[in-house]
Nucleic acid binder design. Sequence first.
DNA 1: ATAACTTTGTGATAGAAATCACAATTGAAT
DNA 2: ATTCAATTGTGATTTCTATCACAAAGTTAT
Lengths: 225, 225
Amino acid sequence: MIDLCKFCQHKSKASEQLSDSELSAQSDNCAEYRFKKGDRIIRQGTLSSNVVFLREGLVKLHMTGPLHEQIIKLTNGPSYLGLPTTFGDKVNHYSVTAIEDSLVCFIDLNTFKTFIMNNPVFAFELFIELCINELNSYHRCVNRTQKQVSGSLAENLLFFADDIYHSDEFILPLSREELGNLIDASRESVSRTLNEFQNEGLIQIDSKKIILLDKKRLQLISQYG
Amino acid sequence: MIDLCKFCQHKSKASEQLSDSELSAQSDNCAEYRFKKGDRIIRQGTLSSNVVFLREGLVKLHMTGPLHEQIIKLTNGPSYLGLPTTFGDKVNHYSVTAIEDSLVCFIDLNTFKTFIMNNPVFAFELFIELCINELNSYHRCVNRTQKQVSGSLAENLLFFADDIYHSDEFILPLSREELGNLIDASRESVSRTLNEFQNEGLIQIDSKKIILLDKKRLQLISQYG
DNA sequence: ATAACTTTGTGATAGAAATCACAATTGAAT
DNA sequence: ATTCAATTGTGATTTCTATCACAAAGTTAT
């Protein structure tokens, strides 16, 4: 268990600022778990007692809204999960669920706090990360409220290809229902719109497998659709 | 100009953690401005070069979406404005406009950074504030995407009464159009829904003046409408 | 393999809200 | 006071999407 964190290949930008002794302290106060696709990592409504760091994998942050479930965002590792829900309140305001097999570290809250208090560069990096997250959350919200189904769908297909899988061909890790929760549409509308995209030659669908055929046009739809 | 900040009655929770010498340094590197209703305080797209602190007043954070303007949120003082846009990127991602006469302090960025680096309690307070902001932004987004016009409108009327004016009778500081930008509805829908509310005896409207008559029912509409 | 359950596709219908169009009101400027 | 511009109210129409209903296809378990 000695110095596991020191040699971790998936450090956050903040934890790259930790000293050897701090990393060693983190190793001693940290537990590693593997989650299978579908496993709940953080549960809305429960006490948040650890800092959660996603080393590898893909997860969804989601919360129950007034009418239905909503996926707030998707995050792939390496990245902290739920800093806001850990430090913003005692209780988790949202859930986190693996949508692909994921490797997660749970870091003791007090140890983490010590780093913030004693290592200003670490604290500053976290601070910056939170700022960027908040900006992104504003952008996501503006987009999801203003775009219609085809626009949001195109946007998210491009997001999967460009930011998650780095390939124009990928296995969609979400059901149609979940895709709907991500873009604020019903299961049926997602189905229909995906088929429209296929009929117009924008994409090719083979059940969960998606191939993006015309990214230029998808980009246009994402912007103005 | 000596120690203006020290005796400021509108300190942020974070700046209450600053030492006398730090407050004095802040006084020396800080400028105070008064903005009239309608004045732009931060302009989307320009360089963000100062930390902006709203001492008194009421402002809207807003950004241009793919289709129209959207009000991200309303903030009243005392509160930092645009920490995310100041530290998250060099360029402002959103605008801030006074919707009531406001008193604002511009704090030198480097001075502020020094505080973060040298005063961990200050940094931690800011960190917590950002976390809470992000949680709130998630909740606002879920609500505005899932509720329909009457629900969002009821929610925001209650927000004005309870959180901004602390009175069930207030002068609405936004035009119908702006209210629409806040709840993702058209100007016309806002007009119509306000009138419905009046016809059902929920509120009384006298042009900009609003009186909430039945908050219980407004709460129900806010939840399930 | 079969049964039971979940996910998905697709047509028909209904409903909420945008848009369009225009009148009325308010406010600002001269 | 008068003019011009901006804001607001209201009806008619259109559009998008949710919902409903049911069939088809996949998955999982026994």
